[in-house]
């Protein structure tokens, strides 16, 4: 059987809220090392990869590898019934056709159980090579969210360019153009405001803002977001979930014809 308890159930709620508009359904894969998901959006332009480590759960048991297909909209409906301070336990029997979500309030006075029907989902897994990226930028997740939201009111695409001192976001549209530059700032007194750049090669790539705005729905999961860029490769937008795992998004760049 599979059983996993997450004291901070809100994490699971936030993860599902962050991905439910991007992907319709997905297989959640569980094995000894943890709970994971990989799914592409319907246009195969972006990909979501979630990984929650077994040791990030207070209790984790997975007797055999299972893949549980769920419609994200339905999962979201159920998780919205969990309180923000509730612990969430997920349970499924081997070869079961449902997954049970148990919500426990902090004082243990309220216990609720919701069963979600599992579905068979055909999913294509892509092999994502472990790569060294030309540039890695770590910036406050709220700053990234603001930038992609602001730029989307001007244009449809953003050019992200990274040099050793700064990362620049630029767009053009019918009404004009916009540029936002964030300088490297390894602020020690306010680590939550730091912007750190690690670069081997300056890089500039163009991406659709619509997807970046969708990724930014993961902002509540982490104080920082990590952007990884290499010439002619998809960008990685990564939210680290402290002590539990990470939620990564991949987005294919715009390519010159």
């Amino acid at each position: 059987m599979f059983e996993a308890r997450l004291q901070q159930g809100a994490l699971l709620k936030k993860v599902v809220e962050a991905i439910k508009d991007l992907i319709e359904d997905a297989n959640f894969d569980c094995n000894n090392s943890g709970f994971s998901l990989q799914a592409m959006d319907s246009s195969h332009v972006s990909l979501v990869a979630l990984s929650l480590r077994a040791d990030g759960f207070e209790h984790y048991r997975c007797d055999r590898n299972v893949s549980m297909g769920m419609k994200l909209a339905n999962l979201s409906k159920i998780l919205k019934c969990a309180g923000n301070d509730d612990a969430i336990t997920m349970k499924s029997e081997d070869n079961g056709d449902t997954i049970t979500f148990m919500f426990e309030s902090q004082n243990q006075e309220r216990l609720s159980e919701f069963d979600l029907k599992l579905m068979d989902i055909d999913s294509e897994h892509l092999g994502i090579p472990e790569a060294e990226y030309d540039a890695t930028v770590k910036l406050p997740s709220s700053e990234f969210q603001r930038i992609v939201k602001d730029l989307a009111s001007i244009g449809d695409t953003v050019e992200i360019s990274v040099t050793k001192d700064a990362v620049k976001f630029g767009t053009n549209g019918d009404i004009g153009s916009a540029n936002v530059m964030c300088r490297q700032n390894k602020s020690v007194d306010k680590p939550e405001e730091s912007t750190e750049i690690d670069i081997t090669e300056p890089v500039a790539l163009t991406f659709a803002l619509r997807y970046l705005n969708s990724f930014a729905k993961a902002t509540p999961l982490s104080s920082h977001v990590v952007l990884k860029l290499s010439k002619d490769l998809p960008i990685v937008v990564e939210y680290h979930i402290e002590n539990v795992g990470r939620l990564s998004f991949f987005l294919a760049p715009k390519v010159e014809e």
Partner: peptide, 14 residues
């Protein structure tokens, strides 16, 4: 004019 790339052009099947 730039066109949108698809992920399969960058990553192969696992």
């Amino acid at each position: 004019k730039a066109s949108q790339g698809r992920l399969e052009s960058f990553f192969g099947p696992s």
